[in-house]
Amino acid sequence: MGSTIAVVGGTGQAGRAVVREAVARGHAVRVVSRRRPGDLEPSPAGVAHHAADLLADDEAQVADALAAAFDGAHAVVDTSNGMTPGARATQFHEFLDLFFGRDSRLGAWSRLGLLPYPRRCRFQTIDLRDVARALVDAAEGVDPLGVVPVPGPSDALTATVGGPQVLAARDTARAWRRSHDSHRLPVGVVLPGALGEFFRAGRNLVPDAAVGTITYDQWLAEQ
C-alpha cells in the first residue's frame, strides 16, 4: 500500500521524474513548489500541490507552507538542492550539454566548427529516471542498490548514486558528435577554477555506486 511523499521542487526537471516514479509505485504525492504543476503540464492523479516559495522574504509564511505540506507525510524528497538525506546523485546526462550544446557558454566554439570538452576530466553521468528510482527507494526506506554512504546534512547518511559508466570527457564528446551527426571537431579545453580541479581530481565519480541503468549513449539516442 502506498504512502504519502512530499516532493520539494516537484515541478523541476528532477522533481517531475520523482513525482512520476512515486505515482507509478502507488504513492500519494504532495508537490511543494512556487508554481502549480498545472502551469507546466496536467497533474497526474494522486498528486496535490502546496505553494511555497523557499526564497521568499517572509520566513514565517514559508515555514507555515512547509508545515502544511509535510503534515502527515511519510517522507520528504528535496529535489531543490540535491541533498535529500538517503540519496544524492552525480551529474545528469543533460549536464554535458553545457559543453556541447550550441546554446551553452561555449557555444561560440560551434561557429568555428569545434566541439569543446574539458581536458583530463571524466564523468559518470546518470539518467533522471535512475535518480528518481534511487530517491523514491530512499523515501521508502530502501537502501539504493550499491550505494556509497557519505556524511550528509544533519548528520544523516547520504548515499551518492552514479551512472552505469565512467567515461572520459573526450569519449562523451565523440558520442555526442555521432548522435548529432555533427562534423564539429572535438577539442580539449582546460576547465578553470575550483570546478575544473574538482573534475580533474575525479571527485565527481562514484564507481562503486554505479546504480544507473541508462547509459549516456542510450540517453542520446532518445533525444
Rank of each mutant, 00 (worst) to 15 (best):
H74P: 01
P37F: 05
R178E: 15
G15Q: 10
H74Q: 13
R174Y: 01
E94Y: 11
G82Q: 11
L135Y: 14
S80D: 05
R20W: 07
G10R: 05
A168R: 10
E222H: 09
S80N: 09
A48V: 01
F123Q: 07
R16D: 12
T79R: 08
G113L: 02
L195E: 14
V136N: 12
I5M: 13
F92M: 07
R133D: 02
P149R: 07
Q61R: 14
R111D: 15
A169W: 11
F123Y: 15
A138P: 09
V131L: 05
A175L: 15
L55H: 04
L145M: 02
A89K: 05
D78A: 13
P186T: 03
S3M: 14
L135R: 06
V148Y: 00
G163A: 04
Q165S: 00
L195G: 01
L191I: 07
E94G: 09
R88P: 01
I126V: 15
H49Y: 12
A60S: 12
L40Y: 04
D57Q: 10
G141T: 08
V47S: 03
D171W: 09
L55F: 06
D143L: 15
R36G: 15
S182I: 07
G163N: 01
D130T: 05
R119P: 07
V18R: 07
G113P: 03
A28K: 10
V47E: 03
V148I: 13
L135K: 05
G146Y: 03
M83P: 00
A201Q: 11
R34L: 09
L106Q: 06
Q223L: 12
P144C: 11
L66N: 06
A156W: 11
A173N: 09
C121V: 07
V147L: 06
L135D: 04
D58F: 13
L191F: 14
R102C: 05
S43P: 08
G196T: 09
V32D: 02
V19G: 06
D57M: 07
Q13P: 00
S110V: 00
L191E: 13
T213W: 00
V142A: 10
G12K: 09
A201S: 14
G12W: 08
R35Y: 02
P116C: 08
G107N: 02
R36L: 02
R25A: 05
A108M: 00
T160K: 02
Q61A: 15
A51T: 14
L114Q: 03
V166I: 12
F92N: 03
A56L: 08
A56N: 06
R16Q: 15
S110M: 01
R20S: 14
G113W: 03
A14V: 14
V76H: 08
A28D: 07
A63G: 01
W219K: 06
L40P: 00
A56G: 10
A52S: 10
Q223T: 08
Q13G: 07
L157C: 02
L96T: 10
R133S: 14
V136T: 05
